[in-house]
């Protein structure tokens, strides 16, 4: 896979390091000549120095044969334009823009550009981690569109002792796995949930709060839906 990343700073560096370690072909575009020299020394990536909003520079960086463009500069307007140029002019199949301003997440999507907001992702992670004591682990996947949550069922849980088929799960939610005494069980309807079980739930942001209420009985949940 060939990835073209436009950005700066530590996020850029560590992302590139991760991608090159996975064996992806990585091309970086950065405006700052000094930073480019540093990046070229430290990473097994091609570094192009210039303005990625300029179609010539995107072309030189091989946008034509790129699978993914990732625009993570600190300026939202640059991220938007880079992604639009990449997809409209170079036909890049997937272009993703960082929305520094979380309000721009929605705007980018409305303008046809895939976006993500670190404020959304980190914010919801912290809120969800701290707002319920029974949650032991939470992982947003699909750019925050899906949550994978691991909880420990307390003795007072409304679902403790009940069979899975008798639990009225909201739509688009799933009990993926139950870990009991260190043993993972992929549950069927006839499996019973017990206090002390570690339950891994798949939810969407829209039903996350309701599902967690159902499993923990805690009403303190503040849905961000």
């Amino acid at each position: 896979m060939k990835v073209l990343i436009v950005g700066t700073g530590q996020t850029l560096y560590f992302l590139c390091r991760r991608f090159t370690a996975k064996g992806y072909e990585v091309v970086i575009i950065n405006r700052n000549r000094e930073e480019c020299t540093q990046l070229a020394r430290q990473l097994a990536a091609t570094v192009v120095c210039g303005d990625a909003g300029d179609a010539t520079i995107l072309g030189e960086a091989g946008a034509m044969s790129t699978d993914v463009v990732l625009a993570i500069t600190p300026n939202d307007q640059d991220n938007l334009v880079i992604c639009q140029l990449a997809s409209v002019q170079f036909g890049v199949p997937r272009a993703i823009a960082l929305a520094n301003d979380p309000d721009n997440f929605e705007i980018f999507e409305k303008l046809g550009v895939s976006a993500f907001s670190t404020t959304h992702i980190v914010g919801s992670l912290i809120e969800q981690q701290t707002s319920l004591e029974q949650i032991v682990n939470l992982l947003p996947v699909g750019e925050g569109r899906v949550n994978v949550t691991e909880i420990v069922l307390a003795a007072g849980s409304p679902v403790a002792g009940r069979c899975l088929k008798d639990i009225a799960l909201p739509e688009n939610a799933l009990v993926a796995v139950v870990i009991r005494g260190g043993q993972p069980i992929v549950p069927r309807g006839t499996n019973q949930l017990l206090a002390g079980d570690r339950v891994v739930l798949i939810t969407l942001p829209a039903n996350h709060g309701r599902v967690l209420n159902l499993f923990t009985g805690e009403e303190t949940w503040r849905s961000r839906g």
């Binding site: 909003g53 300026n75 307007q77 938007l80 334009v81």
Partner: peptide, 9 residues
């Protein structure tokens, strides 16, 4: 340019 293009859209 990019500011203009974004706000215009």
């Amino acid at each position: 340019d990019n500011v203009n293009l974004m706000v215009a859209q």
